[in-house]
Nucleic acid binder design. Structure first.
Lengths: 347, 347
DNA sequence: TTGAAAGCGCTAACAT
DNA sequence: ATGTTAGCGCTTTCAA
């Protein structure tokens, strides 16, 4: 049966060439073509070249579904995306996804996005898993109480987490995270070097382990330098408004000369208060944010910000994924990376 | 042969249940189970329930690879992502991807991300296409001279473009776009309503059809209102710096009381100049941006901005995709949606 | 080094 | 309304 069909002026390919088509063209068996693709070492150089020529000429590419069915793998990595939400710093996630896609591609994987909401945190995972639609998952929202890591572990599903298992010290799954404390320490030490001694902290409420971690970096650097911290710390919601209010209170009560914030959002709030009070960021009061978001970069007065090494995170995650899927024993399940400081006019 | 294997204390499922497993359990043939999943109407209610129970109990989900192989479809939509680039307004793309994932999910599709760079614009497409790894593509960067739409058309590959075929008036592929001119007209009329008559335009260089389109909206609204435009338009690069400089020149030479910008980036530049000159956005000078980016929302003085209806775009794209893949004749290949205006303090 | 046979899990077509 | 047969395109045995 012909694989092409006559219509109008020319021949229109009805379906892509298969292994059998290439085999016929090259005058070998199907298996030899398969070997040419997957185990070229097994072929005699002459045969290999002949097959490769046929592959080239016909534009052959192995059918994914057939290969997936046979090898029981999809070369797909699942990544859940939450419903689009406004105003939050998901620009960071954007950067991460980009680098993850690039890095995965180098390892022969594609990234499959699937929808999810917090009402049914594992639904999407469960479905893809049972359908063997993906080989593994990358889990990004590992905040306190998130059941995904535990659930996936229980299902024996391969996955790598971006984020430490804060509330599960006994967890053994591989993870990659950024050392937030090191980041805020970097920021604080940068300000100390600039001569600041009264450096305030604006962070999140106590129930966020990530927030506590970042706070610890500021606290540690201040203690090490022998600077007081009493009355210089504030814990608020992660909104511009809260940041602005916290900054106003701190300025009135504790007269800091610099602010380190747990997020760029809070830092924007600080900048807002400075603007209202006619204080110049960088000259009168220094401000450092966290995440090096779009906003930090594009803001007229560039905002100094702690920058997560997302490219390195993606590389580490893909590496962990590879050893996980290749059943290679990975000695250290956790990788902690150090952020850098993007210094701009605000400090 | 057993599908479970004894190890240690319990039984560990080695592979998910198949159609045959469910059929055996329910005491029917495999085909009946398949029908229960895909054509439930064909079954007698009693049988259907029995099969459904078995499916539920065993946690059965059809194997994707097998189904894909048989049906010659993957239920996957390919979306190319460019390498992570800094500073640009990809926050918009982020919002789009989120809504696209959500909308696709409702239609039974997942989104497959693949890497691509501008050196080889069609490489990634070609590979996925020949491997029949995706059913269709969503093409987003339809700027002038982009060869993807033409190439995909030539390959007879199903795809929907987000963006009009500006430079290919004869193109017949389905596309969805946002009416930029209507957006800037909305912005301009909003300012006119507020009493402004000298409204300046800061846009992109002439080689961008999108930029020219947005400019036309401003121009049309000004003409319709009978306001002069001479000396009030500027064409620059899409950077904060360029926006700031253009605003300074316009303020000096033409004394506008309001600015409409082709992007939030340019609007940020305007705000910077206003800040330097101690002019209050919204009170002294009104500013409107385009894209309703993160920056516009989080900026201390909220930036009024034209907001693209990305949710509607995603819905329209998925709809077009469905009719494309369902071989349903779609009468109108192009869908043009109207943006809205997110009004904030800056106007 | 190459080829033949088998089968992954599913669904379309046909038969009952 | 349900069962039987065949085969999607590939890779993993195994044989030559």
């Amino acid at each position: 049966m012909s694989r092409t069909e006559s219509r109008g002026t020319g021949f229109i390919p009805v379906s892509p060439p298969t292994l059998a088509d290439v085999a016929e063209r090259a005058g070998v068996s199907r298996q030899t073509v398969s070997n040419a693709v997957n185990n070229p070492d097994l072929l005699r150089p002459g045969t290999l070249e002949r097959v490769r020529e046929a592959i080239e000429e016909m534009g052959y590419s192995p059918n994914r579904a057939a290969r997936n069915l046979r090898t029981r793998s999809s070369q797909l990595i699942g990544l859940r995306v939450l419903p689009a939400q406004e105003g939050t710093a998901n620009a960071m996630m954007d950067r991460f996804v980009h680098t993850l896609v690039d890095t995965s591609a180098e390892a022969g994987y594609h990234v499959l996005l699937f929808a999810g909401d917090n009402d049914d945190p594992v639904g999407g995972y469960d479905h893809l898993l049972r359908a063997t639609a993906v080989d593994a998952f990358v889990v990004t929202d590992t905040y306190l109480g998130n059941p995904q890591a535990a659930w996936l572990t229980e299902q024996r599903a391969p996955f790598v987490a971006f984020g430490r298992p804060w509330d599960q010290p006994q967890a053994t799954h591989p993870w990659v995270d950024v050392d937030g404390a090191a980041g805020t320490r970097l920021a604080t030490e940068h300000l100390i070097e600039k001569g600041h001694t009264r450096i305030a902290w604006i962070g999140w409420r106590k129930d966020s382990p990530i927030g506590e971690d970042r706070r610890a970096g500021w606290l540690g650097a201040m203690h090490d330098a022998g600077h007081p911290t009493t009355g210089l710390a504030s814990r608020v919601e992660d909104t511009v408004q809260s940041g602005a209010e916290a900054a106003a209170v701190l300025l009135d009560e504790s007269a800091p000369t610099a602010f380190v914030c747990a997020s760029d959002t809070l830092a924007m709030g600080v900048l807002h208060t400075l603007w209202i009070r006619q204080l110049a960021p960088g000259r009168d009061i220094a401000v450092v944010g966290f995440d090096d978001s779009q906003v930090a970069q594009v803001f007229p007065v560039g905002l100094t910000s702690v920058r997560q090494p997302l490219e390195d995170v993606a590389v580490a995650i893909v590496r962990a994924l590879e050893s996980l899927l290749g059943h290679v024993h990975e000695p250290n399940p956790g990788v902690l990376l150090t952020p850098t400081l993007a210094v701009r006019e605000s400090s």
